[in-house]
Design a protein around this nucleic acid. Structure first.
Lengths: 246, 246
DNA sequence: TTATTATTGTCTCATTTTGTTACAATAATA
DNA sequence: TATTATTGTAACAAAATGAGACAATAATAA
């Protein structure tokens, strides 16, 4: 196998990013986890930052390569910088399992500081693509993750914590749902993120009170009951002004 | 002047930190700003990360050197990674104004990613010390800052935004006030952080309702009016469990 | 010594928000 | 056509917050 390793000329040494990519399948909150070839190692999708590239752009580039999505809701949430976090043995295992020769002192075995981001994407729009080093990239429910390598478990925890804190402020539902959805679906997103049940009538009243939803035709669901309205977020841009920034 | 520059052997290249150190003088929220020798340049206190040192520890080390304080409330809030942010000309100006010879290609002129932290300290406990490269380090009210170099203005803005968001959650007052304080002083801290007036009775009821304050003897203030109680935070450790983490 | 002044601690009531229950409407199914 | 499950909304209770009132009191002035 030819050399597929990133080269130090191109990238900033000691600096990486990891991404926690959230999706919602209608029931559960999930994240994308990749598995490295022949190692049984599970990890968050991550990458390096080019020498002439903004940090944010590096993350966008990586997400685009893996999901095909162009405009992704992204939020940086923490930078992990303990000495203990990277493990050169694990890195060597991954590289060698991919048929790469790794000489002592290779920059990939060095200490890395990692800037972590979370992304919110529409589960149904995506056909995740594994990269050169990984076998597979798959959705896992957040309460059924495989054991993750290095400190990636901690990174996921912190991402979830941040997502929960931002739930009210940042209109999370807007980025996890298709453009039209029922009130029930929106409530399920909130419940999946918070990990708790919410009261239907209170939730509905509160959300409608925010005056951010536009009501559409009724949907004929196929359920043996009254059909719910469909909603969409009204004027997505101005809402972003209000919530996502500031 | 001898060479006082940090050496690449010791530090991780391309990686720095900046700190926004908040203090409260009883009236205004202030931050520590340093001024570089003979340049008229104002900047946030910052530094580099040793190759065998945790990121958090590097920041603690820097704060300790500058304030003498040992246990400082510290919170990481954002990592700034745009290509445009560092300015090699400014860096060269600072170094040369300090009598340092800087050859082309010196690592200090490279691109830097900066991890930003804010700290909350007790204004009265501190006698800030300038470092080797800076003339002075002084308190400035947050609405009367001098123009800051590079993107340091943006860093302060983001720190304030984060502090405001965390005000309820993280018991900011605990770290900005002396161990005993009046209700009025606590309210002034909240008002200084939020930048708005609060209603006295509502504030008092809410804070007391949190059940985190211990009431002490009355203070004989010297004001021509009823003397207020003094309060302290009860059981600081258990409160930290509740608020600062999780 | 006594009246004045400014601020504090607390109470009350109005207003707003949230929790809870109830119930009619209705799309599919039996 | 009756039954079923779920939806949209109304109604009332409970809790939280806003707003004002007032007695208590430490220093100062008279």
């Amino acid at each position: 196998m030819s050399n597929i390793l990133p080269s130090l000329d191109e990238y900033i040494p000691h600096l990486a990013y990891d991404s926690v990519i959230f999706g919602f399948n209608g029931e559960e909150l999930k994240i994308l986890i990749l598995e490295y070839h022949n190692t049984g190692l599970f990890a968050l999708p991550g990458g390096f930052v080019r020498r002439n590239e903004n940090l944010d752009d590096a993350v966008k580039r990586g997400l685009n390569e893996r999901t095909g999505l162009d405009k992704i809701y992204l939020e940086q949430f923490h930078t992990f910088g303990d000495i203990s976090r990277p493990d050169p043995d694990i890195m060597r295992t991954i590289l060698e399992a991919n048929g790469q020769k790794v000489e002592e002192g290779n920059w990939l075995l060095d200490r890395f500081i990692s800037v972590a981001y979370y992304a919110l994407i529409n589960y149904n729009n995506v056909e995740p693509k594994p990269d050169k080093l990984s076998d597979s990239i798959n959705w896992y429910a957040i309460d059924k993750l495989p054991p993750l390598m290095m400190d990636h478990g901690k990174i996921v925890e912190k991402a979830l914590e941040t997502l929960r804190n931002n739930l009210e402020k940042k209109l999370v539902g807007m980025n996890l749902l298709p453009s039209k959805f029922t009130m029930k679906e929106l409530q399920l997103v909130y419940e999946a993120v918070l990990g708790e049940k919410l009261r239907r009538t209170t939730f509905q009243r509160k959300i409608l009170g925010l005056d951010i939803l536009k009501r559409h035709e009724k949907l004929f669901t196929g359920g043996a009951h009254k059909a719910p309205y469909l909603y969409s977020f009204k004027n997505k841009e101005s809402i972003e002004q209000q919530y996502v920034h500031g």
